[in-house]
């Protein structure tokens, strides 16, 4: 069993490790089973310290629900079958989603404090993260979310979570081979009109990279990753080490 599973279930894991572990869960069915079982034990730890809320809190909470819009279910609409690669069960996507949905707002708030020292810089960064996170939320929350995975020829796995409807996707990779400091992984969007750089994959710890949001994807596009000089190249200068076709 994964060493971090206990700390994860107990929320005793730093935010950074938490999101890495959640990405790991995406590809580890056994870990999801372990988390599921241990969470039931957690539920009893909570039940053991239950205290009855003051009766005055009940009315306002129920009323607040009455004026709060609920999220639509995920996967309510049938998934397009034309996507290549395997389509994980809705459960896998939802499992990941549950974590992401809960953490986005909190991570933003926490990030604000952590990074805080310079107000203006913080606000700029927050706005950027906010845009990224709302893009991720939109993709994950779309009714036609699809997950594609592909092996990277030089080692590791690339994962794409995409929404055809939103025409956006989230790209992550794990287990990528560590490169010398002068080189980096560059992500490309390849379409009928040519190939355009998306950006350099942020080097993650423990082999996790991303997430990167790619917008305006269209039928027939493909994602490619190449190894480039660390500053990035305007055009690929090496053979792609992974290619993910976004439609057949």
């Amino acid at each position: 069993m994964h060493a971090l599973v206990g700390a994860y279930v107990l929320d005793a894991i730093p935010d950074r490790d938490r999101s890495e572990f959640e990405r790991h869960l995406l590809t580890c069915e056994q870990c999801r089973d372990d988390v599921r079982g241990l969470r039931e034990a957690g539920a009893l730890l909570a039940a053991a310290v239950a205290v009855t809320p003051r009766p005055e809190l009940r009315g306002p909470t129920l009323q607040a629900a009455g004026v709060t819009r609920q999220l639509a279910p995920v996967g309510g609409e049938p998934t397009r079958r034309s996507w290549r690669r395997r389509e994980p069960s809705a459960g896998v996507v939802r499992f990941w989603l549950a974590g992401v949905a809960v953490s986005v707002a909190v991570v933003l708030a926490v990030t604000a404090v952590v990074l805080g020292l310079h107000m203006a810089a913080m606000q700029r960064r927050l706005a950027a993260e906010d845009r990224r996170d709302s893009a991720i939320s939109a993709i994950l929350g779309a009714h036609d979310t699809v997950v594609l995975t592909a092996a990277v020829t030089t080692g590791g796995t690339a994962t794409v979570v995409m929404s055809h409807h939103e025409r956006e996707l989230v790209f992550t990779a794990n287990g990528l081979t560590r490169l010398p400091g002068s080189r980096g992984y560059e992500l490309w969007l390849s379409g009928p009109t040519g190939i355009t750089p998306v950006g350099m994959l942020p080097p993650g710890s423990r082999g996790m990279s991303g997430p990167m949001v790619v917008g305006h994807v269209a039928v027939g596009d493909a994602l490619e990753v190449t190894v480039e000089p660390v500053g990035g190249s305007p055009h690929p200068t090496s053979v792609p080490i992974v290619r993910l076709a976004l439609d057949t």
Partner: peptide
Amino acid sequence: RTASRFDPATGSAAAWITTLAHR
């Protein structure tokens, strides 16, 4: 707000809610 995202396949409702609370 997020009740529609609860998936019984990923555990009990109590575990889902207490996980939200603890986190």
